[in-house]
C-alpha cells in the first residue's frame, strides 16, 4: 500500500467504514508509515467535526443540564 492508498483508507477508517479484511492491511501500513500516518489519521478526524457542524443544532431540555450537573456534583462528593 502506498501513502496515497493509505490516505484513502484512513478516511474510511475514521468513519468506521473499513471492512474487517481491510483493517489488517491498514494497520500494517499504519505501522510502516509511522508518525506520518498518525498525523494524517488525526487530520481525518476533522471530518467528524465537519459532519456534526453541517447539522442544524437541536434544542434540548434545560432539565438535562440540571440532571447532568447534579450527577457530576454527586460524583465529586466524598
Amino acid at each position: 500500500m502506498n501513502f496515497e492508498q493509505f490516505q484513502n483508507q484512513s478516511r474510511l477508517y475514521v468513519i468506521g467504514a473499513l471492512e474487517p479484511e481491510e483493517v489488517e492491511e491498514f494497520e500494517k501500513a499504519r505501522k510502516k508509515f509511522g508518525k506520518k500516518a498518525e498525523d494524517f489519521i488525526t487530520k481525518c478526524y476533522a471530518l467528524h467535526e465537519a459532519f456534526a457542524l453541517s447539522l442544524r443544532p437541536a434544542k434540548s431540555s434545560d432539565a438535562i443540564k440540571e440532571r447532568l450537573m447534579a450527577m457530576v456534583k454527586a460524583k465529586k462528593q466524598p
Binding site: 459532519f51 456534526a52 457542524l53 447539522l55 442544524r56 443544532p57 437541536a58 434544542k59 434540548s60 431540555s61 438535562i64 443540564k65 440532571r67 447532568l68 450527577m71 457530576v72
Partner: peptide
C-alpha cells in the same frame, strides 16, 4: 455544544426522548 451533539445524536437515532437521554450520558 449541546445543540450540535443533540443534532448528531438525533440524526443517528431519530428519537427525541432517547436522544435526550443519550445526550446526558454522553456529557457524563
Amino acid at each position: 455544544y449541546n445543540g450540535i451533539l443533540k443534532a448528531l445524536i438525533l440524526r443517528v437515532i431519530h428519537n427525541e426522548a432517547e436522544a435526550d437521554d443519550l445526550l446526558q450520558e454522553i456529557f457524563m
